[in-house]
């Protein structure tokens, strides 16, 4: 997925998010992809995206929550 495609997918995923917290799962996956795309060349952007993935994972009780939390904590970001 190119950065442009990822951006479009994120916009769409935000539009599709509703009161059902499972609808946040695509955001977790897409922000995690954005983290991977930017890490390690652009750590500011990378951890910005990872933070967003973590927040949506927390909100939706996503299975990756602990893993994302652990990465942020190890990086001194939490």
């Amino acid at each position: 997925m190119t950065p442009e495609e990822l951006n479009d997918a994120l916009v769409l995923a935000h539009q599709n998010a509703d009161l059902n917290s499972d609808s946040l799962h695509p955001l977790v996956n897409l922000y995690h992809q954005a983290f991977t795309l930017n890490f390690p060349e652009n750590p500011v952007a990378a951890y910005f995206y990872l933070t967003n993935a973590y927040v949506y994972a927390l909100d939706s009780n996503h299975e990756s929550t602990e893993q994302l939390e652990s990465i942020l904590r190890d990086a001194g970001r939490l």
Binding site: A45, Y49, N52, Y54, L58, L78
Partner: peptide, 22 residues
């Protein structure tokens, strides 16, 4: 900003700048 079901503040995204959550 996220709180758990006991009301404790769990995380404050980007509160220290982009990607810095403390």
């Amino acid at each position: 900003w996220c709180y758990d079901l006991n009301g404790d503040l769990k995380t404050t995204p980007h509160v220290g700048g982009p990607g810095q959550n403390t």
